[in-house]
Nucleic acid binder design. Structure first.
Length: 648
RNA sequence: GCCUGGGUAGCUUAGCGGUAAAGCGCGUCCUUGGUAAGGACGAGAGCCCGGGUUCAAAUCCCGGCCUAGGCUCCA
């Protein structure tokens, strides 16, 4: 920050990213500053960032601001270029269609969109619009910025009701607004933009979607056209390739190919059916947490899928969650499918009296829950109506939070590392509206913080982002192609114990209120399973693979030996490919079915009493001893290694 | 819920007013094959459901169901 030197009327100070300071005249713009640093930088300037906010290069700087110059080739400049591309889209649309009303057209993380009202297009029209955009780019119109008064803007936007609505809001804070003009077309826009349409690289329109004006379903539905733009063709091709790769990992496709699960019309939306191979994977996942739970002193409980709504009134779910619950009448009583497992567990705890010596109590359940998400939100296994949580609820003394949370964190880290997932943590603290005393909040938060500090790992502090009933630690992890997912959580709850009037008798022989901890290691099995399918592209580690080994006899003269071998490996999920087919086809099939290991047996193996082994990386080895391979498989499975590594 | 696509054999898709197609998979047979597709034949489809238009509908229209992608990273 600037020193206490006397404030000059003629010059102000801006702070550059390296911490150095630059003196510039009072009315200097971002671009002026860039030229001040160097003429080369001045010429390359696309836009600027003032205190982190992206602005046009024409924007004036102010005293003490942290200034960053955005130049060509930077990520920010790509955003600027895409924003300009969205203007070209709007220009093209207005050339092709009459009476269209413009809404907004910002850049996004991987492209841009523009929203229009009164526009009727379908996907076949996109090619024509792309062609028009190309012409606009080729015409190389200069993009001119103009600051005009509010009154002047109102006149210019007389035919644009949505723009007028926006303008009204800006009018409160600004005397002037900016327009950007290219050729015959102009738009109310804060910018920044590139200097001319010729600087826009290659533009591609992707899809049409509906979008509510300002995202509010009370408002009219507009037509949104999504597109993207890149500096050059090869970047666009790479982008399309990435989308193709993501599509190839789509768990719905792989799930159907591998016969993992189905979601059928007759059974209803968002209600997945797990087929034997899929349930095999789930069972492995279940038994993994069961081991962790057992080691950490959890006891398994089981609660029904349906409860009288009395329970949901008591837990508060009915009041807060009614629209998302499946509720129905049976005779004179009202029942509801459970949207969460915690009330059932609280009811179990409540059923007897407890001493401080009994605590902590740790209940676990693979509990299926039902939430009536909006139909349009449902998608494969990632958004469903019925899903299973590897739920755990702990009832602890307030001073015992730290110790328990520490154990839970160990379990979570164990899980994430087993699947080779990089993760981040965040601590969410007390929001404005909350229940519970200052004392308990402070005590809880400081214990959570202490757990995080001890790990010596970085974490984000999300102040005020906790639930109203308690603070929490959230995990997020990244999959094999860099996508980020919400992961496990540890959540403290001061509310549920109140609602259920949960107590334990302390050393002082007085009744005390326990704190409840909600925790899940996977979150929901459905979501985690989906993520694993896409993370591994269906190539599960040995311990998870629905079929672990396939025995391929070279000819049917070796069928008997093949089944003998299969018997030797019957502690694994092993199949014999006994179809009348060539070895090549059998190998191909085993590959397509993503089996980690193939055992190949022909006359040579049969005579020698050994096997040939091939893995999914196409490596192979002859004359393998059955015992050696068996030992290896056991170790690979039990250590939950990620890749088949016998031949690696 | 709302917008835009889509729903045809177990799977992936073609056909888009005039006799329902292909590849994979499945079955039978020939082939007995040594490291990513040998060959022949065959079975398999209320073309999502309901209504309408038409001499004629998988195809066009209306309604429903399911499904995919969207539904303020603020001009």
């Amino acid at each position: 920050m600037s020193e206490s030197e006397p404030e000059s009327q003629e010059s102000i100070t801006v702070v550059l990213p390296d911490g150095s300071e630059l003196e510039v005249p009072e009315d200097a713009t971002v671009e002026d500053c860039a030229y001040e640093i160097g003429p080369g930088l001045g010429r390359d300037t696309v836009a600027g960032k003032l205190d982190g906010e992206l602005v046009a290069k024409e924007e004036p700087v102010y005293d003490g601001v942290e200034l960053e110059i955005v130049t060509e080739g930077s990520e920010e400049s790509l955003r600027v270029m895409r924003h300009s591309a969205s203007h070209c889209l709007a220009q093209a649309v207005e050339r092709h269609y009459d009476d269209v009303e413009l809404a907004i057209g910002p850049p996004t993380d991987d492209g841009f969109y523009y929203d229009f009202d009164n526009l009727d297009v379908d996907e076949e029209d996109l090619a024509a619009l792309e062609g028009e955009i190309e012409e606009i780019v080729d015409a190389d119109y200069e993009i001119e910025r103009e600051d005009v008064s509010i009154e002047e803007a109102e006149e210019r936007l007389a035919d644009e009701p949505y723009k007028l609505e926006l303008l009204e809001e800006f009018a409160d804070e600004n005397d002037t607004v900016s327009f950007y003009k290219q050729g015959e077309w102009e738009d109310l826009c804060a910018g920044p933009h590139v200097d001319s349409t010729g600087e826009i690289g290659v533009v591609s329109l992707l899809e049409i979607a509906g979008a509510y004006w300002r995202g509010d379903e009370e408002n009219t539905m507009q037509t949104r056209i999504y597109g993207t733009a890149f500096e050059d063709e090869s970047d666009l091709e790479e982008f399309i390739e990435q989308r193709r790769e993501a599509a190839e990992r789509d768990h719905r496709r792989i799930g159907s190919e591998m016969n993992l699960f189905s979601i059928q019309d007759v059974t209803g939306p968002g209600l997945p059916l797990y087929h034997p191979p899929g349930k095999t994977v789930l069972k492995e996942l279940e038994s993994f947490v069961e081991t962790l739970n057992h080691d950490a002193g959890y006891e398994y409980v089981e609660t029904p899928h349906v409860f009288k709504t009395d329970l949901w009134h008591r837990s508060g779910h009915y009041e807060n969650y009614e629209d998302d619950m499946f509720i129905f009448d049976v005779g004179d009583d009202e029942f509801g499918l459970k949207p969460m497992n915690c009330p059932g567990h609280a009811a179990i705890f409540q059923d007897q009296s407890w001493s401080y010596r009994d605590l902590p109590i740790r209940y676990a359940e693979n509990g299926k829950v039902y939430r009536k998400e909006q139909r349009g939100e449902l998608s494969g296994l990632s958004r469903v109506w019925a899903f299973t949580i590897d739920d755990g609820h702990l009832f602890v003394r307030p001073e015992g939070i730290e110790r328990e949370v520490e154990t839970i964190m160990d379990m979570i880290v164990d899980v994430l590392e087993t699947f080779d997932l990089d993760y981040e943590m965040a601590l969410a603290t007390r929001p404005e509206k909350s229940v519970g005393s200052d004392e308990i909040w402070n005590q809880a938060e400081s214990q959570l913080e202490s757990v995080l500090e001890k790990r010596d790992l970085e974490y984000d502090l999300e102040e005020g982002d906790g639930a109203f009933y308690g603070p929490k630690i959230d995990f997020a992890f990244e999959d094999a192609i860099g996508r980020s997912w919400d992961g496990p959580t540890v959540q403290l709850d001061f509310n549920m114990p109140e609602r259920f009037d949960l107590t334990y008798v302390g050393e002082d022989n007085e009744e005390h209120r326990p704190v409840m901890i909600h925790r899940a290691l996977y979150g929901s099995y459905e979501r985690f399973f989906m993520m694993l399918i896409e993370h591994y592209e269906g190539n599960f580690p040995l311990w998870l693979a629905p079929e672990q080994v396939r025995v391929l006899p070279i000819s049917d003269a070796n069928l008997e030996y093949a089944s003998e071998i299969a018997d030797r490996f019957d502690e694994f999920r092993v199949e014999v490919d006994d179809r009348d087919s060539t070895l090549e086809r059998k190998i191909r099939a085993a590959h397509d079915d993503r089996v980690p290991y193939q055992i190949i047996v022909g006359d040579n193996e049969q005579e020698a009493g050994n096997i040939s082994v091939r893995d999914r990386f196409e490596d192979q080895e002859y004359d393998v001893s059955i015992d050696d391979f068996q030992d290896h498989l056991e170790a690979e499975r039990d250590e939950k290694r990620t890749e088949p590594d016998f031949l690696q």
